[in-house]
């Protein structure tokens, strides 16, 4: 990507005006280097989260307790792979290819959402991920549909539609368990007990400690602060938990008439920072498995490239087949 000096062209003024008018920046438009870098970082982290996030749920595909649930879960994990594809493509419009981003993921230079470093120990965890983790993701992502960068905003529209579908499925799974046998109910409660606090951490550190927030908001990449979104999520979940017949594990949770919001207890940011540093329960497993799949697949990717080079007239490249596969 070449960046023409803005003072020569007045392009910086055009960029600022586009942002101020709430219009979209498109791939061919001039943009500040920092804006580009910030977007690549955010989109890559989002893409990595989708593909790492496949693991905790795929953990239950082979044990799903009914064929209907198995189909729903497989389709969900497939959607996540699809989201990864759109997001890596969105990053590519900014000049950074998928291979480079995957390499950064595999070598620990880019991160994915810490939530996926927690284990899925029972079937109810599949429901808890759908309800809470996808619910938190939607709360974070719906505003991104209005993000100033066009390709990212458009990818998010599609992703959010699918995520809300997943969230409803997770909720329905938990409702079935909660209203099922005593053991099933206990399984659902245990899952909520384990996933509630990590879900609240998904919104990132408190506003006064968030490293990237202020600039992202000025660029309209981000529209609401971490704490605002976290509060919005809590307010949505409390009545839903009640309908589910499950208890959120926070003794300080109470309605604050004055604020018009639910108050909630302190978040254990030490745990958040530890997991972020790599000391969560599954950090090594998640990244290890990702690297292993990539390494074990190297010969397949090399074969596809070699075949394409031998037969340039009829490129039987993976792309076309896969677009059909994703139909």
């Amino acid at each position: 990507m070449t960046t023409i000096a803005p003072e020569d062209t007045g392009q910086e003024a055009l960029f600022d005006a586009t942002i101020a008018a709430d219009e979209r920046i498109e791939p061919r438009d001039w943009m500040p280097d920092d804006y580009r870098a910030s977007l690549v970082r955010q989109i890559a982290q989002h893409a990595h989260s989708e593909i790492i996030g496949m693991q905790p749920e795929a953990n239950w595909i082979t044990r799903a307790p009914s064929l209907r649930r198995k189909a729903i879960l497989m389709a969900k994990v497939q959607d996540e792979a699809g989201h990864g594809l759109y997001l890596y493509s969105a990053a590519e419009t900014l000049g950074t290819g998928r291979d480079e981003l995957l390499d950064k993921l595999h070598t620990g230079r880019q991160k994915y959402s810490s939530i996926f470093n927690y284990p899925t120990l029972t079937w109810a965890d599949v429901g808890a991920i759908g309800w809470l983790v996808d619910g938190a993701a939607i709360t974070n992502q719906v505003p991104l549909c209005r993000c100033s960068y066009g390709p990212y905003a458009r990818a998010m529209v599609r992703i959010c539609k699918e995520e809300s579908f997943h969230q409803r499925q997770g909720y329905e799974l938990l409702l079935t368990l909660s209203r099922g046998t005593e053991t099933q109910h206990a399984m659902a409660q245990d899952a909520i007990d384990r996933w509630w606090w990590p879900s609240l951490m998904m919104f990132g550190p408190p506003d006064d400690e968030s490293a990237h927030s202020a600039q992202s908001m000025a660029w309209k990449i981000k529209r609401h602060s971490n704490d605002e979104l976290r509060q919005r999520f809590v307010d949505i979940c409390v009545p839903q938990a009640e309908t589910l017949g499950l208890t959120l594990p926070d003794p300080d949770l109470r309605w604050n008439e004055e604020r018009g919001h639910w108050d909630f207890g302190p978040i254990d940011w030490t745990e958040f920072r530890e997991v972020l540093k790599g000391n969560g329960p599954c950090n090594d497993e998640r990244i290890g498995r990702r690297r292993r799949a990539h390494q074990e697949g190297a010969w397949v990717r090399e074969a596809a490239a070699a075949h394409a080079a031998k037969h340039p007239a009829h490129p039987p490249h993976a792309g076309t087949d896969q677009e059909e596969a994703a139909r």
Partner: peptide, 11 residues
């Protein structure tokens, strides 16, 4: 799931 050689093959 999660083990395919390339993301397109996951799909």
């Amino acid at each position: 799931a999660g083990n395919a050689p390339v993301l397109e093959e996951e799909v």
